[in-house]
């Protein structure tokens, strides 16, 4: 995508506007489609918004978790390192579906009395923890790729360790980590479909319901697939543009 590289600012803007227009406008053309699609247009739009909502929430939380746990894995304080290692090992070694079910079934008994989590919140938590573990590895690799001379220069200038991290190490490590993080985000769009198991009415669940009522799986699943493709394309454009933006000063 050459255009994305050349005008990253515009590409990001276009992808975001496109996504918003699509989420809130798709019901209009879909409604004009013949049954079983037309009558269920609003349901498709609702499902897509839930899918995108899950992706954005878990995607954002997952980056935060990834940065914190990635740092933790590089810490010189071994209990912290051990904690972060165990977290990644646990999440990457078990199925996402199990993690979603676990949060949904186990959290209510762990949480203090009076706090109730919605199905959506449970799915968002499980997905955040999941993508966070995969992000941890990317962030760690990114931080390790920052040349030590950059840290020395910042420290010699009098920047504190926190300033050195925020102003120098993090931006440079993101340039390395971003392609992998973007990949994880694209997977998340699709992985969020597993939330159907705890009755979150996201896109795949909508498809399942509509075809169950109409007995016409083929048009319904083609529509669902098309919506997923448009969503993943929008997210990929967004992250590719962000990469191009961060690439500034790297090579030229």
């Amino acid at each position: 995508m050459n255009w994305t590289r050349q005008y990253p600012g515009w590409a990001m803007f276009a992808a975001m506007i496109g996504l918003l227009l699509f989420l809130w406008g798709m019901a209009v053309p879909l409604a004009a489609a013949p049954a079983p699609i037309g009558p269920a247009a609003e349901q498709f739009a609702d499902g897509a918004r839930i899918t995108v909502g899950l992706t954005l929430i878990a995607g954002t939380a997952g980056v935060l978790i990834g940065v914190l746990a990635g740092l933790g894995k590089l810490s010189s304080f071994w209990p912290l390192r051990w904690l972060c290692d165990s977290y990644v090992w646990l999440i990457r070694g078990t199925p996402l579906l199990l993690q979603i079910l676990f949060v949904w079934l186990a959290f209510p008994s762990i949480m203090p009395e009076g706090i109730e989590l919605s199905d959506f919140a449970c799915a968002a938590i499980a997905l955040s923890l999941n993508i966070g573990a995969y992000n941890t590895e990317c962030v760690r690799a990114g931080i390790l790729a920052v040349p030590h001379g950059q840290v020395e220069a910042a420290r010699a200038l009098g920047l504190t360790p926190l300033q050195t991290f925020m102003d120098v190490v993090l931006p440079q490590s993101m340039r390395v980590a971003l392609p992998a993080l973007a990949n994880n985000l694209a997977s998340l769009v699709k992985d969020s479909s597993l939330a159907y198991a705890i009755s979150v009415v996201e896109l795949t669940m909508v498809g399942y319901r509509v075809q169950a009522e109409s007995y016409q799986p083929i048009p319904v699943f083609i529509t669902i697939a098309a919506i997923y493709l448009i969503l993943t394309t929008a997210f990929t454009t967004l992250t590719a543009a962000l990469e191009a933006q961060l690439d500034v000063g790297q090579k030229r």
């Binding site: 001379g149 950059q150 220069a153 200038l157 920047l159 102003d167 000063g249």
Partner: peptide
């Protein structure tokens, strides 16, 4: 009070020349 210049320059590769020079006065 002590500045250092390195053999391999170690300029911050993600910042413009201007920002490289302005960063420490702003932060420190």
């Amino acid at each position: 009070e002590v500045g250092m210049v390195f053999q391999s320059f170690n300029l911050f590769s993600h910042l413009s020349i201007l920002r490289n020079v302005a960063l420490a006065p702003m932060r420190v």
